[in-house]
Simulated assay, not measured.
Amino acid sequence: MNTVLRHRLLWPAVILAALLLTNLLFTDNFFAVQMRDGHLYGSLIDIVRFGAPLILVALGMTLVIATGGIDLSVGSVVSITGALACLRISGMDDQNAVSGVVAAAGLALVLSLVLGVWNGFLVAGVGIQPIIATLILMVAGRGLAQLITDGQIITVNSGPYKLIGGGYWLTLPFGILIVLAVLALTAALTRRLALGLLIESVGGNAEASRLAGIRSRGVIIAVYTFAALCAGIAGLMISSNVSSADGNNAGLWIELDAILAVVIGGTSLAGGRFSLGGTVLGALIIQTLTTTIYSIGVPPETTLLFKALVVTVVCLLQSPAFREKVFHRRRRPVTAPPAAEEKVKVPA
Rank of each mutant, 00 (worst) to 15 (best):
G272R: 02
L183G: 13
V4G: 07
M1I: 05
L317D: 02
L20W: 07
T288V: 03
G159Q: 15
I199E: 01
L5A: 08
N96K: 08
G213R: 07
C230Y: 06
A283S: 14
A250N: 12
K325L: 12
V33R: 13
I233N: 00
T302V: 11
S275W: 03
V139W: 10
V114Q: 03
L276F: 02
L172V: 10
L9Q: 06
N2S: 11
V182S: 00
A108T: 02
S240P: 07
V346S: 15
A133M: 01
A228D: 06
V202T: 03
V314T: 03
P12A: 06
I199Y: 11
K307Y: 08
L305Q: 08
G218V: 14
A308R: 01
V182Y: 12
V48E: 02
P299M: 14
K307M: 02
L304F: 12
A85V: 10
T3Y: 13
A140T: 06
A108D: 04
K343T: 13
I176D: 04
I70S: 00
V314I: 05
I45F: 10
A261H: 05
V310S: 00
A108Q: 06
A336S: 13
I199N: 10
A184H: 00
D150M: 09
A339P: 09
L144W: 09
G69I: 02
V311P: 00
T81Y: 02
L317Q: 04
G213S: 00
A97F: 00
C315S: 08
T62N: 12
R192V: 12
L21K: 08
F174W: 11
A187R: 02
L289V: 11
R273M: 08
L304R: 08
V219A: 15
Y161G: 12
G175F: 10
W118L: 15
T155C: 03
T27W: 05
I214W: 10
A17L: 15
E341L: 14
L109Y: 03
H328P: 04
G272W: 07
G167V: 09
G251H: 02
F30M: 13
F31Y: 11
L72C: 09
V114T: 10
L304N: 03
G106D: 04
R8Q: 13
Y294H: 01
L304C: 01
A270E: 07
I296F: 01
L24I: 05
I296D: 08
P337C: 06
G91P: 11
R8W: 01
